[in-house]
Design a protein around this nucleic acid. Structure first.
Lengths: 385, 385
DNA sequence: ATAGTAAATTAATTTAATTAAGAAAAGAAG
DNA sequence: CTTCTTTTCTTAATTAAATTAATTTACTAT
């Protein structure tokens, strides 16, 4: 059990200061003290340590209105690096970033099926190697893996499209690079990326929903991922919304996914218009003025809205961020979606829930992978109410 | 912002010790030290304070196996009292308990409709007065109010069956008794009561679902209620599970409530068998061997199961506790419910989610009202990961 | 130049935990 | 019955780290 110790007290203050610098750099010691209500000597002494550790650095002097000019502090850009990996079903992408999430290197590899566990891991290692520079300054590798992931062991339990099972990602990569490795499901990494780099500081709780091949969600409460008891919190795609609906790949009936995933859109287009199109083609046709396809996307927006209303009634997050391939049809989907949410949600207060589309684009997930390690550095060991 | 201070450090340890005593009394100082990994002097000095405050007391000496006999510690039963109130749509019930939730006094009043805000408050005050003994030792009044409650202001925004709005419960009762008053929605109080007094210590997250007139749920994470951003987290009854379903009283279509509430059961009985029965009568007929009614209840169990599967996929709590009038038909409902959950939930791990019916009976909600104040005393100011 | 002001550091103090040592109380062994 | 061991609990000394107060540094403004 975690007790009240001096170390606890200190690490709490350390996180407060570090996060203040991260979110408000450049900032002076005096201003940190003012804004956190820590005393100046406490700030000075902790900042001294952070500088010695190489996480923080001093830069220029700020301006003064009569008095000594403040020394501005920053996160040390070249102090430490993190590697982020987005391992999708078709390609593996790697980036090298600093502690602020600035990207310095990028590499990607295609995955060809059929593939074995070892081949997959070999591609992963090779791609990471291409961005693995300044080794001694890299503090870890964060991996966003599609499919079902066991976070504790860092194992990919099921990788559906690659048709792989039980890939011991964490242990193999840790062995290879001799460095900390964190593995997380890609939908949750997306949520974490949005929460850290999407510019949503003020939101205490956020749900990020990825609608693409499948539909997944990640729940972030106070900057941290919420996993639930068995690590399946946020299985948004398999929420039943139509007890008489079609059979889903999971075996249940009327899952949200059977209405709104990319495959579902394509299937419905096929059914209604006997056309053999992908979701992308449906969107493009709609863009080109095909009203029937546009209507189909609007209908999809309504269904997503129903799902989100359920989400709001259960989780009641302050913000919901949407991403994934399907959301590229934003212009057709969003108006209907927002209206449905507003109409379905019970209280006026809850109607205020902010629902937006990601502005981080493709990088939200891989930056979330990076954030898996940033949490270790920036997050306090405790949650203060 | 809450900093790392000496007070924080101390209050963390104080909570740890207090909760250890509460959950394991009688217990010695030495054993507390062992089990919490706090050092003996720390335990002694904090226990000394707790005794001086009158929250803890020493009792007999324990047994020894060669060595000084330990002095056993308890929560001081006659040290402090709490008043709990369950304000339902038909009656107001009050209890006087000690810090362990032991009930010493009880009083109840019937509510007649039509009723005004002032009349309602007058009944509330009169009933509380009947249990308001040993005034100087009462630390507060916790009120579980049906309907929509604004927790921050302690106002009942909507009390549906009484047909009242904006009742300023907290301010009026605080003024009358000059004591701390906490107001919470009754479904959430039920959840809190279960979590504190239902014998579920080991569960980090719990959802308690009340199925009666309406369907509500309370979410408890680490012993605390989760409210969400606008305080509507757990509006389980208005989760859409059938996009083509009947219109609910909330205006939406196919809410879970339209399938499983007491009223819904009665309505379906009426529709299928053109009988004018209450849900209770349906249950009694089923008990007397009416197979059609038994089937109707089994069907209800299945629908609840579908709702719970959705709940598990989003919140993934370690435990779900069911209560409320409808759950009195447990013997018909539960087997189908459990099977449906097991069948619908995706991963094997999550199938392990424990689903049970409350064993606290009628008192879960009112004890939850009591727990609203116990939290103030027992809960740590921080959440340790 | 000099006064005034703000930033940062240094020194002294305080809080509260930890470590080490000791006192109290019991059973066990001779 | 005395002595030893064990366990519980307290007391005293030490330590970590925050706070308070004082001081130094480095400006701006008159």
């Amino acid at each position: 059990m975690q007790r009240g110790t001096f170390q606890l007290m200190k690490s709490v203050n350390k996180s407060i200061i570090l996060n203040k610098i991260r979110l408000s750099e450049p900032i002076s010691r005096a201003q940190i003290a003012k804004e956190t209500s820590l005393t100046p000597p406490t700030v000075s002494s902790i900042v001294k340590e952070l500088i010695a550790q190489g996480i923080v650095r001093e830069s220029t002097l700020g301006s003064s209105s009569g008095g000594r000019r403040p020394t501005m502090l920053h996160i040390h850009k070249n102090g430490f690096y993190v590697i982020g990996v987005d391992a999708g079903p078709e390609r593996v992408e790697c980036i090298l970033t600093d502690l602020m999430g600035t990207i310095y290197e990028r590499a990607a590899s295609k995955l060809d099926t059929p593939i074995t566990n070892d081949q997959f891991l070999a591609v992963l290692i090779a791609t990471i190697k291409r961005v693995f520079q300044a080794q001694d300054k890299i503090i870890g590798i964060g991996i966003a893996m599609h499919g079902v992931v066991d976070v504790d062991t860092g194992t990919s339990l099921v990788a559906p499209i690659l048709n792989l099972k039980n890939i011991p990602i964490k242990s193999v990569i840790e062995e290879e690079f001799n460095i900390t490795v964190k593995v997380e499901n890609d939908a949750r990494a997306f949520a974490l990326g949005e929460s850290w780099f999407g510019g949503h500081e003020a939101f205490e709780s956020m749900v990020a929903v990825n609608i693409g091949r499948g539909v997944g969600a990640g729940v972030v409460i106070n900057g941290k991922l919420y996993h639930g008891a068995q690590g399946i919190a946020g299985e948004f795609g398999h929420m039943t919304i139509d007890i008489n609906g079609d059979i889903c790949e999971c075996g249940n009936q009327g899952c949200l996914q059977t209405f709104v995933s990319g495959a579902a859109i394509a299937k419905r287009a096929g059914k209604q218009f006997s056309a053999d199109l992908t979701a992308k083609e449906v969107y493009e046709s709609a863009l080109n003025g095909n009203q029937a396809y546009a209507d189909l996307l609007v209908e999809t927006g309504k269904m997503i809205g129903i799902g989100l209303a359920n989400l709001i009634h259960l989780f009641n997050p302050s913000k919901i961020v949407l991403g994934g391939g399907v959301m590229k049809s934003e212009r057709f989907i969003m108006p209907a979606l927002l209206e449905t949410v507003k109409q379905k949600v019970l209280t006026n207060k809850a109607k205020e829930t902010v629902v937006t589309v990601t502005r981080l684009g493709e990088d939200a997930t891989i930056l979330g992978a990076v954030a898996l390690l940033l949490i270790e550095i920036f997050d306090p060991p405790i949650q203060i109410d």
